[in-house]
């Protein structure tokens, strides 16, 4: 697999993903879920990762955290290669990174009380003093806007989706991590609760000095919280750039398609009926050359012969396309 690289604006990268490949064997075939992705996230930065269902976003997020060991490539966290780390070293490193899932209700054990769920990472990390654990649980629950005395003794089903997501965020924060992968944290929530949770994540980020990889399939949501955005399609990066710049001047046809598809709350903007019909091809047999070519209005012979590499088109903006829009 050819490397794709997208240098970040800052050189102080907390996370550096280098030519990451993740494959799943299914029977005698292979799902090419992530095929040579490189990216950097600077300390204190939020990198948004967007793309359609099945393009490999969760796989990438999980491989970064070593919850799924990558097939090839390196993941440097604060200078240490996580892919070669084992045992205690990996366990210690894992305290500094956390994951928040899309489905908040399903990711909480239905039979355990909220207080125990939130305290669980402390137990695993070896915090033995129950008083200390209780105090930390209370602190973090208050931080995410829940009243600890009202929630610790209750079970997950007694809470709404938005409240469950607050509980998941509390659990992710309790070990004071530096880096959190947020895997579609608001996709299952409705408009008003979504706004509350996005605001909460931003507050927590400022308060705890977090660095975030924020995964979503909704570009408008990603733009609201990200400094830079990476667009992914069928296992590869199409485009990376500063959020505002990417929206104002998308370089990749797929980025433009995603922007066009956002429903605008303005009746004067008639939705453009230009969205090409068709869905992403299977990652078991991805198209040759550019993986987007089967849906791309600009595709030509070169696009099926030659895989486009990420290259700079504007300051900080990188695109993998033979015929970019800018």
């Amino acid at each position: 697999m050819m490397p794709q690289s997208a240098p970040s604006i800052s050189s102080d990268a907390l996370l550096e993903v280098d030519n990451l490949v993740v494959e799943y064997p299914v029977g005698s075939r292979i799902v090419h879920a992530v095929s040579g992705v490189s990216l950097q996230i600077a300390r204190g930065e939020t990198l948004g990762l967007v793309g359609e269902s099945g393009c490999g976003k969760s796989t990438l997020g999980r491989a970064v955290l070593q919850l799924r060991r990558p097939t090839a490539g390196r993941v440097l966290f604060d200078g240490h290669d996580l892919t070669t780390m084992q045992g205690d070293a990996l366990r210690l490193m894992r305290r500094r990174v956390q994951l928040i899932f899309q489905d908040p209700i399903a990711s909480l054990n239905p039979r355990r009380k909220i207080g125990d769920i939130v305290a669980e990472p402390l137990v695993i990390a070896g915090v033995k003093d129950p008083e200390k654990r209780k105090q930390l649980v209370h602190e973090v629950l208050s931080a995410v806007g829940l009243d600890p005395t009202l929630v610790v003794g209750r079970l997950p089903h007694e809470f709404s989706g938005g409240q469950c997501q607050r509980i998941c965020i509390a659990r992710a924060l309790i070990l004071n991590p530096e880096f959190i992968v947020c895997d579609e944290p608001v996709s299952a929530l409705d408009v008003s609760i979504r706004a509350q949770i996005l605001n909460l994540l931003e507050e927590m980020k400022a308060r705890f000095g977090l660095t975030l990889l924020f995964i979503a399939h909704d570009l408008a949501v990603v733009k609201a919280v990200s400094d830079r955005v990476a667009v992914m399609y069928l296992g590869r990066l199409c485009e990376v750039g500063p959020s505002e710049q990417l929206f104002a001047r998308p370089a990749h046809p797929y980025t433009a398609l995603l922007i066009e598809a956002i429903p605008m709350p303005d009746p004067d903007i008639r939705p453009a009926e230009t969205v090409p019909v068709g869905e992403p091809p299977s990652p078991i047999a991805p198209p040759s050359g550019c993986r987007f070519r089967t849906r791309c209005p600009r595709a030509d012979q070169r696009c099926s012969d030659e895989m486009p590499e990420l290259r700079a088109v504007a300051p900080g903006q990188f695109v993998a396309c033979h015929h970019p829009l800018i």
Binding site: V191, S192, A195, L198, A224, I262, P265
Partner: peptide
């Protein structure tokens, strides 16, 4: 009005707090 305001705006700069409707 509150429902409309809670939608992320494409023309707003990143990290602009969303006017969320408080409570449920």
């Amino acid at each position: 009005e509150a429902l409309l305001a809670a939608l992320p705006k494409l023309d707003a700069a990143p990290h602009t707090p969303l006017p969320a409707i408080s409570g449920r």
